[in-house]
Design a protein around this nucleic acid. Structure first.
Lengths: 150, 150
DNA sequence: AAGTAAAACGATATAACGTATCATTTTATA
DNA sequence: TATAAAATGATACGTTATATCGTTTTACTT
């Protein structure tokens, strides 16, 4: 997973008097981006310790909260783990996370047709897909074929 | 939330030598059904204690696992909580849980048009919606209107 | 009815995930 | 450079979940 330009981060987090992208936060974000898979809070603490930086759970969770608020990362509830935001969420404010129940592959899906299809029917069911989070545990192609032998 | 006939439960859990619907499990299922909202594991332990039944975390989580396997309850990852299964999942094997991010209302959605709409597009994205779990955090109508003032 | 193997349960300890509180340090800006 | 807000450190604790091993219950056999 690649790193991210400071300017993007400043834009996303309104860095300034009321929200600062500090070195610690930047380092933690970099570790999350470098991981290539969702990473857990205490594993992040480990990674930071490996880099010579002692971070307490309190500080780690504060940092994760900051990055979540800024839209720089997402939390996968199913895994209690965090991954970088890769989507733009243009035209709608829904976040869709896919987790393969076979191999654990996790990725953000930013797909307008899918979003529209869901919104259409959910509207009729009295559910408003605005500022929403959707988490899907299903099978990626590779795992699907392994299961079905197809 | 209503109770559930033993025959249904036997069918769902293949009660017999290899999977027994014991009194303890039945009592815990009844508490989950009676709650009317997703309930947490340690709150369930409290409820059982109130009824004069001391249950350890180990036993409670074993029971929850049993009920999950039997399809009698679901786990809401977002809440770390459990609720009775109300759906039939006919014709497809997807579970869709809706949690209102405003009021916390949680319910299972068993809707073929929605499922078909999602499956159609997800297929094209290389995701197979079989034996899948989907969790949606969004707004119910009431909370939506409160937010938007509409 | 007694023997039996498997399943369920109890008891204890501990791991994993997350928060509360208050003191200290850093930062942006006046 | 003074200062107020934000961030971080330190300590303790709360919540969610699992490991392990011993005992009891159950379904089934004889």
């Amino acid at each position: 997973m690649s790193s991210r330009a400071d300017s993007d981060i400043k834009a996303a987090t309104q860095t300034g008097k009321d929200a600062r992208l500090t070195r610690l936060r930047r380092e933690i974000l970099d570790v999350i981006c470098a991981e290539g898979a969702p990473i857990k809070a205490y594993d992040l603490i480990e990674r930071m310790r490996d880099k010579g930086r002692r971070v307490t759970p309190t500080t780690m969770y504060r940092t994760l909260e900051f990055l979540l608020q800024g839209g720089l990362i997402h939390r996968v509830n199913f895994l209690n783990a965090y991954l970088p935001c890769t989507g733009t969420h243009e035209g709608h404010a829904a976040l869709l996370l896919f987790v393969c129940s076979g191999c654990g592959e996790t990725r953000e899906i930013d797909d307008a047709p899918l979003y529209d299809a869901m919104r259409g029917r959910l509207d009729e069911l009295g559910i408003r897909l605005k500022d929403s989070r959707i988490e899907i545990q299903a099978a990626c192609l590779s795992c699907h074929f392994q299961e079905t032998g197809g």
